[in-house]
């Protein structure tokens, strides 16, 4: 906890990733950015880039195709980072639960810090969840975070260098 950590809560940058949901939650996120709710007044920005983002906002039930992508996005983010799972699908699959092609929620792939319930959650709920995420994020350290079976994951997700 240094001098700079005090300013953390003033500028959380968001990376939003839809893992195969119905886009209902995404519409809510868009409306949060729009003038009516304007989350930029909290300094939140939707960066769309894991390298510069602090909060990973995941929607959708995590389809099998998305699994590796989600993990890699998570690994590319710099610590301290927080994962927010938004909507019923992200919690346990929602109406997609136990389908052949889904992983039943974000928690099976990457560790989740904040859950935002609802299908789809209202924007107020989203903002509330974000505030909570920022509170958790404030307390996190800069230490590297590991996934389950980290080395293997890195190996499978790595890109071979060209010769």
């Amino acid at each position: 906890m240094g001098f700079f950590s005090k300013f953390r809560k003033k500028s959380p940058w968001i990376l939003h990733y839809n893992t195969g949901g119905c886009n209902g939650c995404d519409i809510e996120i868009l409306s949060a950015l729009a003038p009516r709710y304007d989350i930029e007044r909290f300094g939140m920005l939707n960066r769309g880039n894991p390298k510069q983002a602090d909060i990973l906002l995941v929607t959708g039930p995590v389809t099998k195709n998305c699994k590796d992508v989600l993990r890699r996005l998570y690994l590319e983010m710099a610590e301290p980072k927080v994962v927010v799972a938004m909507g019923a699908c992200a919690h346990g699959g929602g109406i997609f639960r136990n389908f052949y092609h889904v992983e039943n929620g974000v928690n099976n792939i990457i560790p989740v810090d904040v859950w935002i319930p609802g299908c789809a959650p209202r924007v107020e709920a989203l903002i509330d969840g974000m505030v909570e995420a920022v509170e958790i994020w404030e307390k996190k350290s800069k230490e590297k975070e590991f996934l389950k079976d980290h080395e293997n994951v890195i190996k499978t997700l790595g890109v071979e260098d060209d010769g």
Binding site: K51, D68, R72
Partner: peptide, 16 residues
């Protein structure tokens, strides 16, 4: 500093 993958939309297959 730690080394990470270049951003590739999270995809695993390499893009040139």
């Amino acid at each position: 500093a730690d080394v990470v993958h270049p951003y590739n939309c999270g995809e695993v297959f390499p893009r040139h």
